[in-house]
Design a protein around this nucleic acid. Sequence first.
DNA 1: GCTTTTTCTTGCCAATTGGCAAGCGGGTTC
DNA 2: GAACCCGCTTGCCAATTGGCAAGAAAAAGC
Lengths: 195, 195
Amino acid sequence: MNKQPLIDFIKLNIPNIPVSEAALALIAENFEEREIIKNDFLLRAGRVSGYFYLSEGFMRAYTHDPDGTEITTYFYPKDRVVFEATSFFLGIPSTESIQAVSACKGYYTTFDKLNELFHSVPEFREFGRAMLVREFTAYKQRTLVMINKSAEERYAELITTNKEIFQFAQLRHIASYLGITDTSLSRIRREFSKK
Amino acid sequence: MNKQPLIDFIKLNIPNIPVSEAALALIAENFEEREIIKNDFLLRAGRVSGYFYLSEGFMRAYTHDPDGTEITTYFYPKDRVVFEATSFFLGIPSTESIQAVSACKGYYTTFDKLNELFHSVPEFREFGRAMLVREFTAYKQRTLVMINKSAEERYAELITTNKEIFQFAQLRHIASYLGITDTSLSRIRREFSKK
DNA sequence: GCTTTTTCTTGCCAATTGGCAAGCGGGTTC
DNA sequence: GAACCCGCTTGCCAATTGGCAAGAAAAAGC
């Protein structure tokens, strides 16, 4: 079991806060290494979300709208923490599923274990906060973009700032993530390639 | 100085966790009562956000898009905690302003004081978490609605679930919050009133 | 290799939303 | 009370996006 990537990731995200080797070891003990093959699930709708550091691979979260249409709500590139906030914090069944788009690898823990760690390693709380802030601001940003950019602008922004998404995800998933139909995305891409 | 509303709000939001009177008193001491007259600001863009329990009144957050157009990003009814997450957690200048839409009253504190409280009153952390989860899920929900509902559906949802907004806010602010122009909102309202 | 299934693209037309400019109406100022 | 400001509405037309169905391309199965 090699937990070095997890430890490196933690250190990288709280560079100003020294954590003892013993504490890092305790943290690592409470995460379980996990591989998820392509198209398999980290979280299925109806289950309670855990907490997962994605060290390798690419994931997406999705849900269904009232008509039953699948909507991709989020993409996770590697080196992000993956969890469904509502389910995770409140311990209730998730309405979203989270699926591996490519072969994935990472480190998994539960709400209770994470809480214990925050208790026994106070410096580690800073890591938890940093991850939460990252996810929160990402959502705020996304809402803002949805409000005041056109579909074409949203596409342009996505392809310049999150190129990896196009490398892994299907276009119809990207379309629903952008809030448009696959038909419209296809047209936008045609316009784009003309330039 | 009457801090009872603050104490009641805290108790209400962590009903399963008993907090001693002494601890509640300590918490109250670290919040400062504040009134904000109509149109005045809780937070101005460029400043660092504090943490505010809004016990009376109604607020809105807004920012500007690249063209300089004002966009309302959020409405806060009373009995909500008001803060700009990115600025508050990272201690950096806010890109949003938060303004009192009607006369407001509440209780204010800073990041540092709140942190001290979390340290000295561990039960109080549960309150902090509950507030964070509430804001986080509200944003996720909003993003989802923006993605897969039409402007008219978004309006219908807002007027049924958040009627107070229409009581306080200007229609042009509601329009930008819904991601449409004031012209479109006006038309949607006309269609609606026909029914 | 060939067939089957899934994903993506395209054409056609309809629905939604935006942009602009004019007008309306209530409140404020002097 | 006349002039002004502000927020909201309306009419007209253009731009954006969606819906559907058919076909092309790519991926998966055998």
